[in-house]
Design a protein around this nucleic acid. Structure first.
Lengths: 345, 345
DNA sequence: CTAAATTTTGGGAGCGCTCCTAAAATCTCC
DNA sequence: GGAGATTTTAGGAGCGCTCCCAAAATTTAG
């Protein structure tokens, strides 16, 4: 069975190629009668125009790329990323764009992947999940290639670049302030990696909350984590001997690790030690003690990222757009309070 | 800056368009001298051929589609799927294919997504994650469209279709047999959904193991789960009053839910009750009691899926290929044994 | 009813590549 | 050195669409 082309449809409908093209692209200036006749043939033959030809002629592929650099791929097991990916996929569908996924697996892969991503005629635009030092390469490449790009999470060099992020400083600040308000005084934190903006910003929020309430900022109570469960587990073992009465973990996954370590040490949450996480993953309500945590608007972020990118593509918008999404502090059992949800800007 | 074309490169190198094309596609019959001259210009100008033009002319897009039907998208939070996706992405990269991700979010989306997936000139082939009744639609569509396809997991109608799967019956059989060998006699199971081949097969393996050892098959000890944590949690609460001495959960995530319920009931794993899961997710070794589970070769499966598909595409292989991957029973603490890893075919 | 304005349609050119064929260049061997 | 075999190269045709412009059909107005 030979593939149908516009020309075939045109012939069967007794019109020209151009007219069929107009019908397919919903252009006006096609008479009602002709439109119907063409539509009938299209449906009858189950015709779809060839994607490559269309892309070549129109210089638009209707495909967006999602790049997860090495720094992110490693943490793809953190449910946060699949969640975000899901939100983005959804937003792409709704806008009739197709999503191409680039999961960078190793340093070597990175090199020969960039050209594949940036080559003309394949992607209309690119989304890069980032916030890590090591991601400057891919961001720079895309910028050089002059391909529309939106970064997910604030990159280190954020001028010239559109991005969508949450206010990490404030979100962390709110979480820690909450602990302070509940009377906790020796609050420790498991941070994200210090070579990521998330890691830095959430720590800054933690510091800010302490300072503001005249609590000492004790570097011994700060342990760098890596956003993994074992990372949280080992981090907490370093901190426990210092007898903190609360812990702020920069991610739920690390909070789960902390929880495991605390349980093993025979301590009770929240009585002996309060715990607050970050992300509001489903798993944070599956633990025996439910986790108080900062909820990120994952799906909405995905939508926003896609919309920003499409705006750049379709309206040729040049100047960088920075979007900061709101977060919510979700109060459950692990912090020792038992109130309603608090909404912060 | 105008986009460069083959013709531009040809001009600069003082050769013809065809010669540049030959160089780019690594064809022989280009003299060493010319080859070098052209390569120099290509590197110097940082040229990459236009993807759409290439696809149109060669009828090959070097892009593979990964479709997660609705039944799967729902469970994208189960780390198993992101893991598999990662394996597939990796295999694509290694073979220089690009991966397009189709995450079906709703019934309505499904309808208008099929054509996007199946339209000519965009994908060379398609992988469908499946094993659920509801997935027959997408599989049928792809088959009709005559686009090369490999299904991940055995679909309900598996003739005419290539797929890669594990031997679910045997894997479950081995896991349950292990429990029997350890002296457990009232073994309950939390199954997968009964409208999925995984659900059916793992239950069958459970049954087989009991029958073979002359243990009664008691339907009351069988509860249908849905592969979610809360699903496992509630399933176990139905079973616990029946005083089982062991539980086989058809997924690690459900096993985690079971573990939570068991802990809350004040029972000890494995002393009061043994627990075996399925998948070997990282999280199964993060719990306070480490989970005995069936390990699936996720990455290898991904590689195998991609290789099978590429074989169909590049060699026009028509007849369906069925691959069954090996699994391992990983013995940790939750089953009450403490031995080495057992390998079963 | 006719001329002008407007709507609708058809076909050429072009998007940037690959593939094929034939011509040009080079090599082989007597 | 030259005929023939072989390697290398050039350029035309074509992939299937969109976009533009001009021609044809239709509508409107006088």
């Amino acid at each position: 069975m030979k593939n149908l082309t516009l020309e075939d449809i045109a012939e069967r409908a007794g019109v020209s190629r151009s007219t069929v093209s107009r019908v397919i692209n919903n252009q006006t200036s096609v008479s009602k009668r002709t439109h119907k006749r063409v539509m009938d043939v299209i449906e009858e033959t189950n015709f779809y125009p060839n994607a490559a030809a269309r892309t070549l002629a129109s210089q638009r592929s209707w495909t967006l790329g999602l790049v997860l650099p090495l720094s992110v791929s490693i943490f793809f097991t953190d449910p946060y990323y699949p969640n975000l990916t899901r939100g983005i996929a959804q937003a792409c569908n709704q806008n009739n764009y197709t999503l191409a996924l680039f999961l960078v697996g190793s340093k070597e892969e990175e090199e020969n992947m960039y050209p594949r991503i940036a080559r003309k005629g394949f992607l209309d635009g690119v989304m890069v999940q980032s916030g890590h030092h090591g991601d400057q390469g891919i961001i720079g490449t895309m910028l050089d290639m002059n391909i529309p790009m939106v970064v997910i999470g604030r990159p280190f060099r954020s001028d010239n670049v559109s991005y969508v992020d949450i206010d990490n400083v404030n979100s962390a600040y709110n979480a820690v302030s909450h602990l302070v308000r509940l009377g906790r005084r020796r609050i420790a934190t498991i941070t994200g990696p210090f070579d990521s903006t998330v890691g830095i910003d959430r720590l800054e929020g933690y510091r800010k909350a302490l300072v503001e309430r005249n609590l000492p900022y004790d570097p011994n109570l700060v342990v760098e984590g890596d956003f993994t469960e074992p990372g949280g587990y080992y981090a907490i073992q370093k901190i426990l001997p210092l007898k903190p009465d609360a812990i702020f973990a920069a991610s739920d996954v690390m909070a789960m690790g902390a929880m495991r370590a605390i349980n093993e040490a025979g301590m009770k949450i929240p009585d002996d030690i309060a715990l607050v996480g970050f992300d509001d993953l489903p798993l944070s309500s599956y633990s025996s003690v439910q986790l108080t945590t900062v909820r990120q608007p994952v799906v909405q972020s995905g939508i926003r990222v896609v919309e920003t990118l499409i705006d750049m593509i379709e309206n040729g918008n040049e100047k960088p757009i920075h979007t900061i999404m709101d977060t919510d502090l979700i109060i459950r059992n692990s912090c020792g309070a038992n109130q309603q949800m608090h909404n912060f800007k």
